[in-house]
Structure formats: structure tokens, C-alpha cells
């Protein structure tokens, strides 16, 4: 499945690992856009060119939650809604309720595998 994805993480190696695992999970990440924090991701975000956003939670300048808030605000009234999946460490699951209120569609827990990414993303992308 071809996928245009915006990967937001302050760790460049994690952005690379996410892209590799997407491919190993059977997705074909075409048109990958990378950003190192929420502010950079907002600058690079073009709704018509992105099928999925994968975002880290803790980042400098603008964290994942504020980024989600801004994206959903931008989309308000446009009829578009890009799925957003947070990439979190274990221990942050309790905060996901707050994230869901803001419009996050799901989360992937680090460390992840191609199988766990596939299991999380497939229903979210099917519901797009």
C-alpha cells in the first residue's frame, strides 16, 4: 500500500527506523516528509499530499500534542482529516486519552516491530 507520510520526531534515527519499518510492514512510504519538531512539521504539512502523520510525543519547540491541536485546527471546516498516530514510549499510554480528545487516531508504542505497526495502522488507514 503506497503511503505518503509525514514523520515527526526530534530523533533522526527514529525517523529512519519508522520509515524502514513501514516498508517492512508492507506499506510503501512514498513521498516521505520528515520534520524534527511540531513547528517544522506544521511548515511542511500539505494536507492534499499526506495520507498519514506519525508523530513523536516529546519534542523541543513544539511537542506532539500541540502539533496535533494545530493540525486539527487547520483542518477545521476544510472537510479534510489526515489520520494522526502518535509514537510513544511505554508509560505514556495514560496520556493517550487526552490525545484522543484532541484528535489523535491511535498510537504505536516504542519499541515497535513491523507487525505491531501494521496491526495499529491498518484499521486506521482503512477508516480514512
Amino acid at each position: 500500500m503506497a503511503l505518503r507520510v509525514l514523520v515527526v520526531d526530534d530523533s533522526s534515527v527514529m525517523r529512519k527506523i519508522v520509515c524502514r519499518m513501514l516498508a517492512q510492514a508492507g506499506f510503501t512510504p512514498t513521498g516521505v516528509v520528515e520534520a524534527s519538531d511540531g513547528a517544522e512539521a506544521l511548515d511542511k504539512f500539505k494536507p492534499a499530499e499526506i495520507d498519514l502523520i506519525l508523530s513523536d510525543w516529546h519534542m523541543p519547540n513544539m511537542d506532539g500534542l500541540e502539533f496535533v491541536r494545530r493540525i486539527r485546527s487547520l483542518e477545521n471546516g476544510t472537510g479534510r482529516r489526515v489520520p494522526i498516530v502518535m509514537v510513544t514510549t511505554e508509560g505514556a499510554q495514560a496520556k493517550m486519552e487526552e490525545a484522543k480528545q484532541l484528535g489523535v487516531d491511535g498510537y504505536v508504542t516504542k519499541p515497535f516491530t513491523p507487525d505491531s505497526i501494521k496491526e495499529k495502522l491498518t484499521p486506521i488507514l482503512a477508516g480514512k
Partner: peptide, 15 residues
């Protein structure tokens, strides 16, 4: 980056 991420994942998983 990866060494930092591993430390973070271990801390999160242990918590």
C-alpha cells in the same frame, strides 16, 4: 540518537 532512544524506551518500559 539511538542510544538515547534505547535509554528512553527502557525507562518507559520499566515504569
Amino acid at each position: 540518537d539511538l542510544v538515547g532512544e534505547i535509554a528512553n524506551m527502557i525507562a518507559g518500559n520499566a515504569s
